[in-house]
């Protein structure tokens, strides 16, 4: 897969890298290629609404980015896709989130099974205090896969996919906490894709990392889209422009505009979007 040149340059890209965007193949999204669709989704925390009437679909094997000011509900929406919000006391969700043909909010849905299909990477790297190997094998062991050969294989494959293998192959048994922040985040990605999810949710995965690590994560995301449906939350518009095919702009709990990244950044339809991406937003 060819990478946009930007990734080899230093990060300080102040404007949008439109070249990179134009070089990206832009296959039109067909109905059948919908990975997940959200219908009339409302969410409130202890009665306080945080998401209002969200309605849109996420294409399969593409990168979809959520942008918007802090507190607009990006994380809340993302956490609806693997029902992470279930953990929050007082969080009430109404509406439907369809994965394939099932509404994941039906009471009959096995949440563990859902989370295996929809993996998640968090803002702060959160490796377990175990060896690098065990971190990656964790999700498999949970599923009862304990055969050493099988594990070895998957661990290597996942670490390679996460572009971490070369750096850690000689110290797989070392504690994962000894890795740098960027390496930890890639380890978390490796851990997530080790269970072969269909979809990977990333909530500001690079916001706590240095520029070089951020670049590597972005490269990685770009490569992973050939196999996984990726949804990424970012407050960094350049990042959204660099890595995503589709972008959704959110504000005050509403989905303001949703379009292909190209169009959203070059030709926004809404006034709010334009204000935000041109930096006029308060």
């Amino acid at each position: 897969m060819d990478k946009p040149d930007t990734h080899d340059k230093p990060v300080a890209t102040h404007g949008f890298d439109l070249d990179a965007l134009h070089r990206r193949p832009q296959a039109p999204i067909q109905e059948a290629d919908i990975a997940l669709s959200v219908e009339r989704l409302n969410l409130s925390y202890s009665g306080k609404p945080a998401l209002r009437d969200i309605h849109f679909s996420i294409p399969r094997r593409r990168v979809t980015a959520f942008i918007g000011p802090s507190g607009c509900g990006k994380s809340s929406l993302l956490r609806c896709f693997n029902r992470m919000n279930d953990l929050v006391d007082g969080c009430v969700v109404s509406g439907r989130v369809m994965l394939e043909d099932t509404n994941i909010y039906l009471p009959t849905v096995d949440v563990s099974q859902l989370r295996r299909r929809v993996g998640m990477v968090f803002q702060k790297p959160n490796p377990f205090p175990m060896s690098i190997y065990e971190n990656v094998a964790y999700g498999l062991r949970i599923q009862g896969i304990n055969r050493r050969r099988h594990l070895d294989e998957i661990v290597e494959k996942s670490l390679r996919s996460a572009a971490l293998w070369d750096e850690v192959k000689d110290r797989l048994q070392d504690n994962a906490l000894g890795l740098s922040g960027g390496q930890q985040q890639r380890l978390v990605i490796a851990r997530t894709i080790a269970v072969e999810p269909e979809m990977v949710l990333l909530d500001e995965p690079a916001s706590s990392l240095d520029p070089i690590s951020t670049l590597r994560i972005e490269e990685l995301i770009y490569e992973l889209r050939s196999k996984y449906t990726i949804v990424i939350v970012t407050h960094n518009m350049q990042q959204a422009a660099r890595v995503s095919d589709m972008t959704a702009f959110m504000n005050l709990g509403r989905l303001v505009e949703y379009d292909s990244t190209d169009r959203l950044f070059t030709n926004p339809q809404q006034r709010q979007t334009e204000d935000y991406i041109t930096g006029r937003y308060g």
Partner: peptide, 11 residues
């Protein structure tokens, strides 16, 4: 965050 990391893997 560590608990969420585990839960997000289907534990």
């Amino acid at each position: 965050s560590i608990r969420e990391g585990s839960l997000a893997l289907g534990a």
